[in-house]
Computed example of a mutant assay.
Amino acid sequence: MNDDDAVFRALADGSRRLLLDRLHEKSGQTLGELCHGLDMTRQAVAKHLAILTDANLVSWKRQGREKLHFINAVPINEIAERWIGKFERTRLSALAGLKKELEAGGRDNDSE
């Protein structure tokens, strides 16, 4: 499996994306902090973190007895540059904006 495959596999799971979101909000969290408020066991979170670490999306370091986890956005950026960059972001952004406008307009008409 190449690096891109590992990243896509890691990002395919909603729980792992949630962990990345939480690490984006506050990098350097312990396993206990990442588990707080989640409907997952500690073992499940640890397993997801291992997959994210294997994909190089999360790194960690020991600080005393604690293991702190940090997000690594480089692999995601590399994929964005490879897959999105070549399709011209400006045009894609314009199309995304148009789609949002059209969808919002459709909702406004439904409420009348």
Rank of each mutant, 00 (worst) to 15 (best):
M1S: 14
N2W: 03
D4V: 02
D5N: 08
D5Y: 10
A6P: 01
V7M: 09
L11S: 10
L11C: 08
A12G: 14
D13F: 12
D13I: 10
R16G: 08
L19I: 09
D21T: 07
R22L: 11
S27G: 14
G28T: 01
Q29F: 04
L31C: 04
G32R: 05
E33A: 08
L34C: 06
L34S: 02
C35H: 06
C35T: 13
C35R: 08
H36R: 13
G37S: 13
D39W: 11
D39K: 14
A44W: 00
V45L: 05
V45M: 12
V45H: 01
V45F: 00
A46C: 04
K47S: 12
L49F: 11
A50D: 10
A50P: 02
I51E: 13
I51V: 15
I51M: 05
T53F: 03
D54S: 09
A55I: 08
A55G: 04
N56V: 04
N56D: 13
N56Y: 07
N56A: 12
N56R: 15
L57Q: 08
W60P: 00
R62M: 13
Q63R: 13
Q63N: 08
G64W: 09
G64T: 06
R65M: 10
E66K: 15
E66M: 01
E66G: 00
L68R: 02
F70V: 11
F70Y: 14
I71F: 05
I71Q: 08
A73E: 14
P75R: 07
P75W: 13
P75I: 04
I76A: 15
N77W: 14
N77A: 08
N77S: 10
N77L: 15
N77K: 12
A80W: 11
A80S: 10
A80G: 10
A80I: 14
E81D: 14
R82T: 07
W83D: 02
I84D: 04
I84W: 03
K86W: 03
F87W: 05
R89E: 12
T90L: 06
T90P: 01
T90R: 14
R91D: 11
L92H: 07
L92P: 01
A94L: 07
L95A: 14
G97M: 05
G97S: 07
L98C: 00
K100L: 08
K100W: 00
K100F: 00
E101G: 00
E101K: 06
E101M: 05
L102M: 13
A104F: 03
A104L: 04
G106C: 09
G106I: 12
D108W: 01
N109C: 05
N109V: 02
N109Y: 00
D110F: 11
S111W: 09
